[in-house]
Design a protein around this nucleic acid. Sequence first.
DNA 1: TAGGCCATGTAATGTGTTACATGATTAG
DNA 2: CTAATCATGTAACACATTACATGGCCTA
Lengths: 212, 212
Amino acid sequence: MSLKHILLGLLREPGTGYDLKSVFDERISHFWSAEFGQIYPTLNRLEERGLLESRVEPSEKGPNRRVYTLTGEGRQELLRWLGSGPAVGAERFGYLAQLYFMDALGDLHETRAFMTALKGRLNEWLGRLEAIETAVTTAHGNAPERYSDGGFHQFATLRMGILSIGSKVKWCDETLAAIDRRLALMAVPDTGDKCPISRGSTRSDKPGEALS
Amino acid sequence: MSLKHILLGLLREPGTGYDLKSVFDERISHFWSAEFGQIYPTLNRLEERGLLESRVEPSEKGPNRRVYTLTGEGRQELLRWLGSGPAVGAERFGYLAQLYFMDALGDLHETRAFMTALKGRLNEWLGRLEAIETAVTTAHGNAPERYSDGGFHQFATLRMGILSIGSKVKWCDETLAAIDRRLALMAVPDTGDKCPISRGSTRSDKPGEALS
DNA sequence: TAGGCCATGTAATGTGTTACATGATTAG
DNA sequence: CTAATCATGTAACACATTACATGGCCTA
């Protein structure tokens, strides 16, 4: 759906496939990624369809570079996409899928280890984004409304990454606390009167009506 | 990467392709989605590989149902996946990609409308998740550590959806406020001494060094 | 001289969406 | 009688990852 459009957006500034790959890795990784194996064929297709054009230039270091530029038609398509309303609802979280089924492991300590590892990864990621934020505010001040047009929009996406990942780290803490309470409950199962926690497979009712 | 594994997880309770589709739509949509066109072929492949087995049963309403069940091998593969560490880092956000390039529209009011629409969609989504949360806590109490094993894990994923989408709604507000400050600045460009906001295409330096 | 970066691509495979095709049963 | 729901699938296409293949230039 959108790699095509992201390439068009990036190529408002001319560049090569190799350049684009590093932009993905360095500046866009918090909301999109792409590999060479996808970038090069897509650039070719976009040129065939007239949305891009390219010229070959000698490189300062290494082999010749094929530099792509946006055509008028390409810009039109970019604007059409930008005006088509927010593309929401298709998010996918592999780690949530794992957690959802993790009762199958039958050991809450496994879940705990998983959440700890996840929190570590998220914190690393958050740290990277915050370092970028610091660099930006140091260079351009902390009033984003005074940035350039491009900078303002890019800064907004960066903020969403920081807030969103930050909330996930908090969620890890909340969940770890709940896990610890649950582990404590399970350690003294004979104390309370009623202890509705299932051990092993307590599947009370119909397939998956627990959460609907 | 994981539709396969999600199907294995869901099929700890036997079910048909049709059943699974409604589970995706009703209970899993905040972190994964799938269409019939992908579900049925995947089920077939998993059966060929011995991770699932199926039998045909008459339905109470409508045509015969093919009911799939997890095999021992399938359960092994599920556990392997669950133990392989958190699958993090591949998230994709179409709407962030759009926002990132939205300066190309050359009109901040467009961005404002976009963010307002996005906030509305996210709020709807948040409302749906909160309704589920209310239903769960009403039925099972608000101490998740006392839920069943499956319920505990599922509730944790629900909480992440609520916290994460909640943080995105807050981000929408933050961004809308920044947009309004910027619009105010642009309305009186002659007042201040230095006004480093670009109008039109102020591309100061090299391709995209604004945010790196 | 070895390893890393610059630079472009293909092939095989895997994953996901959309459109199409079929048909029974049930509720209004 | 009609629409919705139940139920399964295929075909074409679009999107994405991984591995492989090539080779020049620069630095340590």
